[in-house]
């Protein structure tokens, strides 16, 4: 597959080529290819296509790129591989197919990582998200000693047992691209696969943003506003959750009619918390309290989702 692509689209030549190759690979395996969720999230897992769809009995296979924001990881554009905004490529397969490891290895081959040449390893890494009330077992996948993906079998999400279990693959796109392009500094990545005057690098696209957002995240983010936003998002989430419940008729169980809008507010609260944390205005003792508050929202949203059609409610 790699061979019939024009040079600028090849995964080892361009960042966008890498994304397109992964999308095509997973599209060929029956995944719906979604676009990024239109809210700030810390990881692809927060996308409702993963968090909520992982709950309930219905089969679901999807893949998408998710821009992820980790305000604390900003380094003013000075660190060669730490970013406060980066891309994850996320795949969710429910139930987890029995050949999911093979599928994953094939996807690496599709972006030019040859397992006869490279040392690919599955190293224990159990995943837990305290804010989402979620955990799973799996590995970090190493290629020549570099972590290129996270591989998780979700066991619990939003405090509910996953039945069936989903398999989640998360590719760190910048790292992977640096690896296949043979680049040491993320800003030197070739973004569009062109050379000379036409070449656009990752730095051309994102360096200024990294500098500006680092300033924002660490020094200027308006904490009064953020505290207020946290409070409001938490309040709104609860309000929508409450308003969404509807008693079933004729012996049917209760249904929920607004799980998704409520979950948006949970995502919002989580991101606002991350910003406050980066600003250093949340003390160590308070921190746990905030995480707990977001988790309570996530759990309530999961419960609501399970009472929707998508969540498999009858």
């Amino acid at each position: 597959m790699v061979d019939d692509l024009p040079a600028h689209m090849r995964p080892e030549r361009s960042f966008q080529g890498l994304i397109l190759a992964l999308q095509r690979f997973w599209a060929d395996r029956g995944c719906v290819i979604l676009q990024p969720y239109d809210m700030e999230v810390g990881a692809g897992t927060f996308h409702p296509a993963t968090t909520l769809r992982a709950l309930g009995p219905k089969a679901w296979n999807a893949a998408y790129v998710q821009p992820s924001r980790r305000p604390k990881d900003g380094r003013y554009g000075e660190n060669p591989n730490r970013l406060q905004h980066y891309y994850q490529f996320q795949v969710i397969l429910k139930p987890s197919p029995l050949d999911i490891q093979d599928l994953y290895l094939q996807s690496l081959a599709a972006i030019g990582i040859d397992h006869k040449l490279h040392d690919i390893r599955f190293v224990e890494d159990d995943w837990e998200s305290p804010t989402l009330g979620a955990w799973g077992l799996g590995w970090e996948c190493w290629c020549d000693g570099m972590e290129v993906s996270q591989f998780t079998y979700f066991q619990q999400v939003a405090g509910f047992e996953c039945a069936p279990v989903s398999g989640e693959l998360t590719y760190g796109l910048e790292r992977l691209a640096m690896y296949v392009q043979g680049v040491d500094r993320v800003y030197d990545l070739n973004f569009n696969g062109r050379e000379g005057a036409e070449k656009v690098t990752y730095g051309d696209v994102f360096l200024q943003a990294e500098q500006e957002y680092s300033r924002h995240n660490f020094e200027h983010a308006d904490t009064d506003m953020l505290f207020e936003q946290f409070r409001m998002a938490e309040g709104a989430c609860r309000k929508y959750l409450e308003a969404g419940w509807e008693q079933g008729e004729g012996g049917n169980g209760a249904r929920h009619l607004m799980a998704l809008p409520a979950y948006d507010q949970c995502i919002k609260a989580s991101h606002v918390f991350n910003l406050l944390d980066a600003r250093g205005v949340i003390s160590v003792t308070e921190r746990q309290g905030y995480i707990l508050r977001v988790r309570e929202l996530a759990k309530a949203c999961g419960e609501a989702w399970l009472a929707t059609e998508g969540g498999g409610a009858q």
Partner: peptide, 23 residues
């Protein structure tokens, strides 16, 4: 020390718990 369920069978009661999927 830690075990998991996987695949379609994980939705069934009494599914095997193993450290990682057993083949």
């Amino acid at each position: 020390p830690k075990a998991m369920r996987w695949g379609a069978r994980s939705a069934e009661p009494g599914a095997l718990n193993w450290v990682r999927p057993l083949h």
